[in-house]
Design a protein around this nucleic acid. Structure first.
Lengths: 183, 183, 183, 183
DNA sequence: TTTT
DNA sequence: TTTT
């Protein structure tokens, strides 16, 4: 509801792969995307140099579904979100950290995609409507994702389930996942 | 729900005056604020120059109330919103345009305000909850103002009421004001 | 060099017309562009509504040239800049105000443009270096376009030259235009 | 000079510690800062929850010096920069990644700091001009810090020097550090 | 590790 | 009209 601080990320880039979408027991979708932003410049010898930065994006719910449906490797998108760093344990049991962008707004760019639906903009819907409770005028999102409804820390999700893995676990969702156990 | 395009403004500055808050018949608040952002630099003669830009901000509903309660002349704030240009008619009946920032997120800065409440961050609540309809978890705003619920153009508000004026009329709210006539 | 405040605008949209590029006596280019950002949403009756906001963009120098060369009506771009409101006088001698976005960063989107050069990103160059004049303290870039080198207020440009016009005069450049008289 | 993509981070928060400033052989300063952004909200039980996100900031050159001089634990600042993820090796020789915000603009907030200098805004200076070396095309600032002058990948710095460490090595500067060996 |  |  309130917050102290601003945590905002704005990216425009291309996807390195098709989005990976997973569904949780309660039907909520989660998508992971890999986005490249690159910059090129001339060095002091006049040679063109290029550097690409890869960003790990996480989307939830409707936004995740849209990503899965309309985005693919190479898609150019605008995203807005917030930074979130998660701690996890690798196979040796060592602490590791992964920083992700929790996306709350996405915009497909280019408009000439063959899918026919390119060019739309989408925002994270508010939380709590996941179990199908109908609420007439609830659809108008516009909200910055879970910005105001951050994670129920440890809310019913066994932390131990992620131990000993070699890739980072999925991001803690930025809203209540009730009592389901996602993975 | 969807959008095509991004329209985002981010400002940090100080208020030139106390916020002006007005209430509409349905109880919704609207606030107008004047925000200064200034930059200084050294010119080619080494003289320090300064330039101040004044921004007209508009806030609605809860955000407007918070502004009226906690902000005053001199307050330093962070705001995020979107640009909106309105057409109005001056006293000579001539078309005029005013550009405003419709704020959907505000953050009080400084933290050492005497009021004791400095330092909070607030976001525009979603629309449609103004008549006191209770909806448990509905309060968590998080949404970017009316970003997704733009104006009912001409929605019940007599345009003629603003003709012949010498200052710009209040901004068309960025969401349904039902059937009330604000001014 | 220093500033107090943040004045930032981020837009993604399409051009309503080809850019208008003009050159000043000293060879500097100035471009005016009209950019649309639109949002659509479902109203309470479930009808899809759409609203388009038009933004007046101003670019200087190299950025203006690039705009003239690569952008045209319909081009989709990302821009970053600052808000600036200028006062001018209409044909009746009345004060009028126009708010523009002084662009310091531009990114062509889409990437499949026929021109072969789509997809590049460009930033405003600093002021006053177009004639190769060496200027010791000129190096402290890091700056967003003219962000740190604001207008020489009234610098050699006859204000009266703009009186009695029906369209807004060109924006005060955000940097020295030396001693030339642009229009 | 050109880029394809946008990589932008905007943060407002408080420093968890005094900035750590180090100087390189060529006199360039590098600062590391730890910035907290926190958000609070009411959960479904009506309990106030809070979550704090910690961000690792890196500043170079003049900005780093200003940070060292004016910022301290608790300082509230606005920063703008870009995301950069670096690979390094821990003491076991394992690959690790650290994501940092390379800051190119900083603004001190609050204004009532006891130091007397609070409230200024600063931007990253462009690269390589600290020793007064003249460089024709160096003037075209408009650039966001090193945004246009990214790292000379592997530029003279022995990677091996960082092997086997347990904390992340300092960020590769986003511009030429000439031929010096920083650490 | 900050801040309210 | 603010702020430093």
């Amino acid at each position: 509801m309130a917050s102290r601080g601003v945590n905002k990320v704005i990216l425009v880039g291309n996807l390195g792969n098709d989005p990976e979408v997973r569904y949780m027991p309660n039907g909520n979708a989660v998508a992971n995307l890999s986005l490249a932003t690159s910059e090129s410049w001339k060095d002091q010898q006049g040679q063109v140099q290029e550097r690409t930065e890869w960003h790990r994006l996480t989307m939830y719910r409707r936004l995740a579904e849209i990503a899965g449906e309309y985005l693919k490797k190479g898609s150019q998108i605008y995203v807005e979100g917030k930074l979130q760093t998660r701690k996890w344990q690798d196979q040796q049991g060592q602490e590791r950290f992964t920083t992700e962008i929790i996306v709350d707004q996405m915009q497909m760019l280019g408009g000439r995609a063959e899918g026919g639906n390119a060019g739309g903009g989408y925002q994270q819907r508010p939380q709590g409507n996941t179990q199908g409770n109908p609420q007439g005028n609830q659809n108008y999102g516009g909200q910055q994702g879970g910005y105001q409804q951050p994670p129920q820390q440890g809310g019913g999700r066994p932390q131990g389930g992620n131990q000993g893995q070699s890739k980072p676990p999925m991001a803690e969702p930025d809203f209540d996942f009730d009592d389901d156990i996602p993975f």
